[in-house]
Simulated scan of single mutants.
Amino acid sequence: MAERRIAMWSGPRNLSTAMMRSFAARGDCACVDEPFYAHYLLQTGLPHPMRDAVIASQPARWQDVLPALTVTPPDRPIQYQKHMVQHMLPGMDLGWTAGLTNVFLIRDPERVAASFSAKRGLPDPAELGFYRQWRMWQDMAAHGPAPVVIDSADIRRDPARALQALCAAIDIPWTPAMLAWPAGAQACDGVWGAVWYDAVNRSTGFAGPEGPPPSLEGPLAALAARLRPSYEAIASHRLRIA
Rank of each mutant, 00 (worst) to 15 (best):
residue 4 R to V: 09
residue 86 Q to W: 14
residue 66 L to C: 07
residue 153 A to H: 09
residue 26 R to L: 04
residue 45 G to E: 04
residue 73 P to I: 02
residue 127 E to N: 07
residue 194 A to K: 11
residue 123 P to G: 03
residue 217 E to L: 09
residue 130 F to H: 06
residue 10 S to G: 12
residue 157 R to Y: 09
residue 61 R to M: 11
residue 91 G to K: 06
residue 155 I to V: 05
residue 100 L to I: 04
residue 224 A to F: 00
residue 206 F to M: 03
residue 64 D to G: 09
residue 209 P to R: 10
residue 154 D to R: 06
residue 165 A to F: 10
residue 206 F to H: 07
residue 236 S to A: 13
residue 13 R to D: 01
residue 53 A to I: 08
residue 53 A to T: 07
residue 185 A to V: 12
residue 181 W to L: 02
residue 1 M to V: 15
residue 158 D to C: 05
residue 152 S to N: 09
residue 100 L to E: 04
residue 174 W to L: 00
residue 190 G to L: 06
residue 97 T to E: 03
residue 116 F to V: 10
residue 227 L to K: 03
residue 192 W to P: 13
residue 185 A to R: 14
residue 29 C to M: 12
residue 34 E to K: 01
residue 218 G to K: 06
residue 160 A to W: 11
residue 8 M to D: 05
residue 96 W to V: 01
residue 204 T to E: 11
residue 220 L to V: 04
residue 25 A to F: 03
residue 131 Y to M: 15
residue 232 E to I: 02
residue 210 E to T: 14
residue 105 L to T: 02
residue 100 L to N: 02
residue 210 E to H: 12
residue 233 A to K: 11
residue 32 V to F: 13
residue 240 R to C: 11
residue 72 T to P: 08
residue 82 K to L: 07
residue 6 I to L: 03
residue 93 D to S: 14
residue 170 I to Y: 01
residue 152 S to V: 04
residue 176 P to D: 07
residue 43 Q to M: 09
residue 125 P to S: 12
residue 216 L to W: 01
residue 23 F to I: 05
residue 84 M to E: 01
residue 204 T to V: 11
residue 125 P to V: 07
residue 153 A to N: 10
residue 149 V to W: 00
residue 194 A to L: 12
residue 106 I to L: 15
residue 97 T to M: 05
residue 177 A to T: 13
residue 22 S to V: 07
residue 59 P to Y: 07
residue 136 M to C: 09
residue 196 W to P: 01
residue 170 I to S: 00
residue 198 D to E: 14
residue 28 D to C: 07
residue 21 R to W: 03
residue 202 R to M: 14
residue 175 T to E: 00
residue 174 W to R: 00
residue 168 A to C: 15
residue 123 P to E: 05
residue 62 W to M: 04
residue 14 N to F: 03
residue 202 R to G: 11
residue 188 C to L: 08
residue 222 A to I: 13
residue 72 T to D: 05
residue 215 S to Y: 10
residue 141 A to Q: 12
residue 166 L to M: 05
residue 43 Q to N: 15
residue 61 R to I: 13
residue 79 Q to C: 15
residue 53 A to G: 13
residue 77 P to T: 00
residue 161 R to L: 11
residue 2 A to L: 11
residue 217 E to G: 09
residue 70 T to C: 09
residue 170 I to F: 02
residue 109 P to V: 11
residue 82 K to Y: 06
residue 57 S to Q: 10
residue 39 H to Q: 06
residue 5 R to D: 08
residue 32 V to I: 08
residue 197 Y to P: 02
residue 83 H to K: 14
residue 35 P to A: 06
residue 125 P to D: 06
residue 137 W to V: 03
residue 50 M to L: 14
residue 127 E to Y: 13
residue 21 R to G: 00
residue 224 A to V: 01
residue 79 Q to P: 09
residue 32 V to E: 06
residue 39 H to T: 07
residue 35 P to K: 04
residue 222 A to V: 05
residue 206 F to N: 00
residue 237 H to S: 06
residue 157 R to C: 13
residue 65 V to S: 02
residue 155 I to H: 01
